[in-house]
Amino acid sequence: MLILGIESSCDDAAAAVLETATPGKAVVRSSVVANQEIVHKRFGGVVPELASRYHVRTISPVIEAALEIAGCSLSDIDGIAVTRGPGLVGSLLVGLMCAKGLAQTLDRPLVGVNHIEGHVLAPLLEHEVAIPYLALVVSGGHSAIFLTEDFGKYRRLGSTRDDAAGEAFDKVAKMMGLGYPGGRVIDELARTGDRKKFNFPRAKVRGNGFDMSFSGIKTAVALTLGRCGNGNAPAPSDLAASFQEAVVDMLLKPTMEAARRYGVKTIALTGGVAANSRLRERLTAEAENEGFRVIAPSLKYCTDNAAMIALAGSYRLLKGERDADDIDAQAALSL
C-alpha cells in the first residue's frame, strides 16, 4: 500500500510517500520538507500568519516533489494521512484542506493523524522496535513521556506542566541574545562551557506521574543574567552548559523512572530536541547502563516530517478505516 503523508502543523510543510503492508513496518520512498526558518528568523519565532501563507505557496510543490522522488504519481496513492493537530490552526488547515481535496478527487481514504503520535512512532521508520516501548517526545511545542502499548494505544505517563523543553531553549537563547532557534546555538556553546558553573534548580513536580516543568529554569536564567549586570556578565558558554545540564537532568529523571516502573526494554527519544547532543549522550549512557536500549531517529525524522505522519496513519488505512469528510483541524488536540 502506498500512503501519501502531509504535515503542516507549524512552520514546516512536508510530504512523504510510504510503502507498507504491515503496521509499523514501512519503507520511506520519499520525505520532503520545506523549512521556513529563513522566513521566521527575523521575527525570533514562528509568525502564524506568515506560516500559513507560506504553506499555501509550498504545499503543492512539496507534494509534487515527494511523488517525483518516490517515482509514482497521484493515481498510485492508496490512501492519505494528514496532521489534524495539535499545532497552529491556520497552518494545520492548509495541509488538511489540501489532503481533503486530493482524497475526494482521487476517491481515496483519508485519515487525520495526531502530530504527537507521529513523533511517538517515528523511531519505527528506521528501527525494529518491540512494543511496548517508552517514547520521550521533546520539541518546541511538546514535552511528554508516552508508553506505546499498541498502534493507536498510547498512555501519557507525564508531560510538562508549563513550558515545553524546546521552548525553554528558545527563550533562554533569546534572553542571551543568541537568536532563534535556540537549540542548536546552546548545544554548540555548551560544549566548551562549565556545566557546574551555575547550579540551576531542577524542578520537582508534585503529585504522582512523571510530569516535568521548564518554567522555573527560564526564570532562574533570567535572574542570573539580571544579577550579573553588564560589568561581569557570565560566560555564555558556562551559562549555556549549566542550563542545558539542568534541562537534561529534568528530562532524564522521569524518563528513567518511567522506564523502570513499566518494565520496557526500549526508550525512544524523538522530537526536535532529540537532536541535542548532550541529551542523547546522557540518556544513552544512563539507560544502557541499566540495560535499556535507546533509539533515536536520525535528525530528519526527529524534526517535523511527513513520513512519521504517513506511518501513524498507515495502521488505520491498512485496516480499511477512513475519517469522515468533515474532519476538522484541532489546535489543542491531545494524545
Binding site: P86, T160, A164
Partner: peptide, 11 residues
C-alpha cells in the same frame, strides 16, 4: 494551563 507560546491561543 500550559504555556501557549507554541500555539498562540489556547481555549
Amino acid at each position: 494551563i500550559l504555556s501557549p507560546t507554541f500555539i498562540i491561543i489556547q481555549e
